[in-house]
Amino acid sequence: MALFKNQLKLMRAAAISVSVLVALVTGMMIYSASSNLIPASSFFSSYALILPILVGVIATLMCGDMGTRDFYYPAGLIVLAQPVKRWVAFMARFSASAILAIVPLTILFVSAAVGSNYFYGATMPGMLASFAVAVLYMLSFIAFIAFISIVAGEGAALTTGILISVMAVLFLLVLEHFYGIEPWFFLPYAGMSIGAVTSTPYPTHFVPNGIFPYTPYLSEAIEIMVGYTALSLASAIWFYSRREVL
């Protein structure tokens, strides 16, 4: 519990700056949408497209230092010598980070709702479902980044996280379009369902000649995200528990 609060405190500044960043990005998107008079439907879809990228970037910025927090700062010499089980310490930090990361995500969705209501008089359809999927996606991304950070350090975590989220579209294009494989093993593939749930009906799983032939079934996306979360957390805890403070 003490560690949970400590993590909240340590990350307060990061949470605020990421939130401001997110607010700026959304503000700009809504502004450009309104001034170019993009039709509502394409505003929604462009929003849904950019969401997984933003979620990935937020998660990376918030959790990239998970592994360095205790093992590289000299504070770890004291903090890790306290009578607290390592997995408890890790979960305290992880859950505090996750909760803080949901703040900018909420800002993102609320401003999308307000913005679209204001300009188009309608809210993005399936918005709540989309938010729920986005939260789960955020959770799995954070778990994955925390794992990388603990195993390979902050630099590797930041690089991996930003690369995966920013280049996701490219990776998906290559895997799906050119190799014709369903990339169920690639976390951002599940992220596609954040946008997919906003379209009715839910997109067809496989469209032979599409640019992105595959869209994950919602259940499949949830399985991927839950799988990533479980595996990443289990491995992160394994490494966090065995790691020595050299």
Binding site: A2, K9, V79, Q82
Partner: peptide
Amino acid sequence: DFLTLIGGM
């Protein structure tokens, strides 16, 4: 805050 953390732990 640091000493409070340790006290809590």
